[in-house]
C-alpha cells in the first residue's frame, strides 16, 4: 500500500455565447450634464463583475477614465433587452452593444466639442483622461466636463447612443448537422498532478497548471478571479460533487453542505494560471467568453492523472475513493 503520484493533461475549446446565436443584447449610453456617462442595460451581474467590465468598455470607447462611467442594469423598466447572463455571453454580447452605443455617444460629444473649438469633429481625439484635443495641436483642447455642459445647456444636444448586438440564429441542417454554433472559441490546456492513496482511494490534487486563451483579458485581475474559481470548480466536479451519488439510483442525495461534498480550502491544489490573448474578430476589444470553459479541462486532466498514478480508469464522475478502490480491487483480481 502506497501513495502514488501521477499527472494528466487535457486540452479543450469552448464556444462563446448562446449556441447557434439568435441571442440579442442592447445597451444605451448617455452623458450627465457634467460629463459622466451612464450605461443602461438589463443584463445581470452574477458576481463575476459584469458591471465593472461594461464600465471599462464604455470608458475605453468614449475615451474617459473608467470612474467616470456608471452602469445601471437589471431593471426591465429602464434597461433595454438582454437575453441574459449565461452561455459565456455577457462580456461578448453586452460588450459589443456597449461599444456601439458608446461610439454613437462619442460622435455627438466630438461634434459638440468641434463646435466649441471651431474645428472639424474628425480633427479631434480624446486623451483618455477626460479631455478632447485637436490632433497635432494639443494646446487647443476642451474638457469633457465643459463639452457636456455645453451640450446640455447651450447647444441642446443629447450626448447619447444606442447599441445592439445580435448574431443571427443558425438552424442545423437536419441530415448533415451543418450549422454555426458560435463565432469564436476560447481555448485551454491543463496539466494536473495528483497523489492517490491506493489503500483509501483518496486523491489529493497537488498542482494544476492552467493555460487559458481568452481573446483579451479586459481586466486581468477580474479574469484571474474567474479563472481560479473555475479551476477549483473543475477539481470539485472531478472528485466530489453530485446530487445523486449512486446515479441512476435516486437515493442518498445530499440536502445541505454537510452531505453534498465539495473541497474545502485545505483540499485545493496549488493553482497556476497563464493567459494567452488571440483577439477574436467579433469580440469587444477581442474578448471571448472565459466564464464557463475555465472549469472544464481540470476534470479530464485529473482523471488522466489518477490513471497515471494507479493504473485504473474511472470513467464515471465523480471519481470517488469508493470507485477507485473498487477499480483497484477489480484490477488486482485479474
Amino acid at each position: 500500500m502506497a501513495i502514488k503520484r501521477g499527472r494528466g493533461v487535457a486540452a479543450i475549446n469552448y464556444p462563446t455565447g448562446m449556441n447557434l446565436g439568435g441571442d440579442p443584447t442592447q445597451a444605451l449610453v448617455h452623458s450627465t450634464p457634467t460629463g459622466n456617462f451612464m450605461v443602461t442595460l438589463s443584463s445581470v451581474d452574477l458576481g463575476q463583475g459584469m458591471k465593472q467590465i461594461m464600465a471599462q468598455i464604455c470608458a475605453e470607447t468614449i475615451g474617459v477614465p473608467t470612474d467616470r462611467v456608471v452602469v445601471d442594469t437589471a431593471d426591465t423598466d429602464t434597461g433595454p433587452h438582454c437575453m441574459g447572463t449565461f452561455a459565456s455571453r455577457g462580456t461578448h454580447r453586452a460588450g459589443n452593444a456597449v461599444i456601439q452605443a458608446a461610439k454613437e455617444a462619442r460622435q455627438v460629444m466630438l461634434e459638440v466639442a468641434a463646435e466649441e473649438l471651431e474645428v472639424n469633429a474628425s480633427d479631434l481625439e480624446t486623451d483618455g483622461l477626460g479631455n478632447i484635443l485637436v490632433k497635432g495641436a494639443p494646446q487647443k483642447a476642451i474638457s469633457i466636463f465643459d463639452v457636456a455642459l455645453s451640450a446640455h445647456f447651450k447647444r441642446g444636444r443629447s450626448i447619447s447612443g444606442r447599441g445592439m448586438f445580435l448574431i443571427p440564429r443558425s438552424y442545423p441542417e437536419k441530415e448533415t448537422g451543418a450549422m454555426k454554433p458560435s463565432t469564436c472559441y476560447a481555448h485551454a490546456c491543463t496539466v494536473a498532478e495528483v497523489e492517490v492513496d491506493d489503500e483509501t482511494g483518496e486523491v489529493t490534487v497537488l498542482t494544476v497548471k492552467n493555460v487559458f486563451e481568452i481573446g483579451r483579458a479586459l481586466n486581468p485581475k477580474m479574469v484571474e478571479q474567474q479563472l481560479v474559481g473555475g479551476s477549483w470548480m473543475g477539481i470539485s466536479h472531478a472528485l466530489y460533487e453530485t446530487t445523486e451519488p449512486y446515479y441512476p439510483n435516486r437515493d442518498h442525495g445530499g440536502t445541505d453542505f454537510n452531505q453534498y461534498l465539495m473541497p474545502g480550502p485545505g483540499d485545493l491544489a496549488e493553482t497556476e494560471i497563464i493567459v494567452l490573448e488571440r483577439p477574436s474578430a467579433d469580440g469587444p476589444y477581442g474578448a471571448k467568453g472565459p466564464g464557463e470553459m475555465c472549469a472544464n479541462p481540470q476534470i479530464p486532466a485529473v482523471a488522466n492523472a489518477v490513471f497515471d498514478a494507479v493504473g485504473v480508469r474511472i470513467d464515471t464522475l465523480p471519481i470517488t475513493p469508493e470507485r477507485i478502490l473498487r477499480a483497484l480491487r477489480a484490477q488486482a483480481a485479474t
Binding site: A10, A11, I12, Y14, P15, N19, F86, A87, G230, M233, H237, G291, E292, M293, A295, N296, P297, I299, P300, A301, A303, N304, R313, D315, L317
Partner: peptide, 14 residues
C-alpha cells in the same frame, strides 16, 4: 456552467 460541453470534454479528453 459549461452546458452541453463539460461532460463531453471529460469523455473526449480521457
Amino acid at each position: 456552467r459549461g452546458f452541453g460541453v463539460t461532460i463531453g470534454d471529460f469523455a473526449l479528453e480521457v
